[in-house]
Structure formats: C-alpha cells, structure tokens
Amino acid sequence: MAKSFPALLFGCLAILILAILTPRVWLLRKLYLDSDLRSTVRVELNGINAQEGILLSDMLVQEVTDNTMRFRLQFHRRGADNSGCLIDYFSTGQVHFCAKSGPPPGPAPATP
C-alpha cells in the first residue's frame, strides 16, 4: 500500500483534472465532429466581432448545438472584468443572455 500510495495520489490528481475537463469537451463535441457547424461558429464569432467590436479572445465558446452556440463574454481589463453568458441562435443570428445570467454592464448584446 505504501509503495502504491504515490501512484494513487497522482491518479486522483489526474481524475480530478479529467472530471473538470471532460464535461466541457462533451459540450463542445459537435464543434469538432461537424465541419459545417465549425464554419458556422467561426462565421458567427467573426460576425459578433465585426458588429460589436468584441475581441475574439474575450469570447469563450462553452457549448455548441445544431442551432445555438453558448459562450462566455468576458471583457478583459485591469480590475474586475465585466462578464456574462450569452447564447447565439444560428437561425436568427440573434444573441441573448443565458437564462440564469444577468447582463454584463455596458452596451446591449450583439444582434448580428
């Protein structure tokens, strides 16, 4: 037992990291499996950038479905960042705040 304790400890650390990362990858699986969806996401992100002037590095894609893209918008700046969760509907091109997320202070969300 004493000999396998270090391996056990390392295994627990690896499982912890895996437990944090796997759900995130699962929500993004369609982004990697469907090339059409991938190009749609790229177009939508570029559209939001073109309309709202938001930096691509301020948008973190969190979930992609056939019709929507959920992303976290975080305006990086010195001090507390304004951030919020947004959903982009591919069919209408409209962007809304996620149901449980309040709007980040500042201009209204993008409607590309």
Binding site: L55, S57, R78
Partner: peptide, 30 residues
C-alpha cells in the same frame, strides 16, 4: 468604452480600467 481603430495588442486592455473594443461607428454612443 474605449474604442480602438485597427488591430491592437492586449497591453491596451491591461492599461485600461474600462472595456476596450474595436472601433465600430454604432458603438460610439456608449
């Protein structure tokens, strides 16, 4: 907000306590 024309580096965000965006005319109001 601070609006910046053309591409810019992240140092602008670092030096700013305000939201930094690419310049777009409709954003001038805010």
């Amino acid at each position: 907000d601070i609006l910046i024309t053309h591409s810019f580096g992240h140092e602008w965000q670092y030096e700013s306590p305000f939201t930094v965006r690419h310049f777009r005319r409709p954003l001038m109001a805010d």
